[in-house]
Design a protein around this nucleic acid. Structure first.
Lengths: 217, 217
DNA sequence: GCTCTATCTCGAATATCATTCAAGTTCGAG
DNA sequence: CTCGAACTTGAATGATATTCGAGATAGAGC
């Protein structure tokens, strides 16, 4: 141990590889869709052998989950940055719901990922849950919302959000339906129609830009 | 045209084949799950060649959609049979929502199908939609519900129902959560918490038994 | 009743990947 | 510098959805 390195070359390379694989996975999957993405191409873009992927992820599905969790985590952090100055917990929740639907319907790269509703919804639940459930509970405590089981409420909301996003992306509803969907989700949390409409239409500060690197040009 | 048959032997065989394929698809898919079901086995159970399946369905996915639509249709009809004597449209909707979640979580065969949330939710929307949207609109007109876009509301509800069912099937929530989920969905339609709780806990007449034939014993 | 063709059915052959694994390579402790 | 453990590699494997040419069938016309 001449130079007391905290990490050896192996550990460093492994970190780089894992990161490169998640990036490459995002790149390919958001370009072609999760099913059409091949492990071969992902491995190539990450510049590792095809078999190496399997020392990092047990299966293609596990890689997809990691990719989507990364995207969700990034979004959750950006939402938290904006809303941590809000005082009304109901407004925090409303902002979050809307931000997710807008991200899912606005960004071409997200659309490809939507075709795994279960994966998306579960990743959303895991990554946004800690914040969203806290907000739901705070709002309930403050008498703004009436729901009693915030976890169940948010679980349902995650699937509902994916469903609404899919429907809008597939042009079954116009983008303007986003607001109506937010209203329904606020009602689900236990707000009156009137309060929900009012809350959903409030002006909102913008979200910071996506921080995940873009696929190559 | 000696015996004026409305349908020739070919047409009859085709009807039988299509039907047999949907039955066989249901049989295998509900036994092993949609992904693990092979076209080979489905073709065998339907007693047709493997390639023949493709003269009836463009792809495995299209077959899965037909299978699930069949199941949904059957359930929708049975729900309608019970609720067409109800007078409160909100109660009709509540009954339907609960019946679907109970079917999805109670029947082992349904569980295997849940792993295609998008397919399930879309089939639910198409088959139950005509009834459910009518009920939502009636209830809204009667001042029971406050939602303004029943189609959007039910689209969201379908995904929410699948999400809740999945969570219960996977033991993230106890079966008792069904009632709480129904309450949330009623709130989403625009009922107050109090009314929703009251409506969800009313005694319900039983559903007729499943009319799809069981897989072989 | 017989023939002929358009149509349907068959299942072996194909194509496509996810995943595995035997062989080679790299790291770093001693 | 040496050696083994751990990591990489990419060609081989296996599974299976889908295709396709050959063979069977129905039924219209004679």
């Amino acid at each position: 141990m001449l130079h007391p390195r905290t990490k050896g070359r192996v550990a460093l390379r492994q970190e780089r590889n894992r990161e490169a694989l998640v990036q490459a996975g995002y790149s390919v999957m958001s370009e072609k869709g999760i099913d059409a993405a091949t492990m071969q191409e992902i491995a190539e873009r990450a510049d590792v052998g095809a078999g190496t992927v399997y020392s990092y992820f047990k299966s293609k599905d596990e890689l997809a989950v990691s990719v989507i969790e990364r995207v969700m985590h990034d979004l959750a952090v950006r939402i938290e940055e904006v809303t941590n100055t809000f005082t009304d917990p109901a407004q925090v929740y409303a902002y979050g719901v809307r931000a997710v639907i807008e991200a899912a319907t606005g960004d071409l790269r997200w659309r490809q990922l939507l075709n795994r509703p279960e994966v998306i919804a579960e990743a959303m639940f895991r990554r946004h849950g800690p914040f969203a459930i806290r907000d739901l509970e705070n709002a309930a405590r403050a008498g703004r919302f009436t729901l009693t089981d915030a976890r169940l409420g948010f679980k349902i909301a995650c699937y509902a959000i994916v469903g609404a996003s899919l429907a809008i992306v597939q042009d079954e509803f116009p983008p303007a339906a986003i607001e109506a969907a937010v209203v329904r989700l606020l009602c689900m949390a236990g707000l009156s129609e009137q309060d929900a409409v009012q809350l959903a239409s409030r002006p909102r500060p913008p979200l910071a830009p996506e921080s995940l690197p873009t696929s190559q040009p």
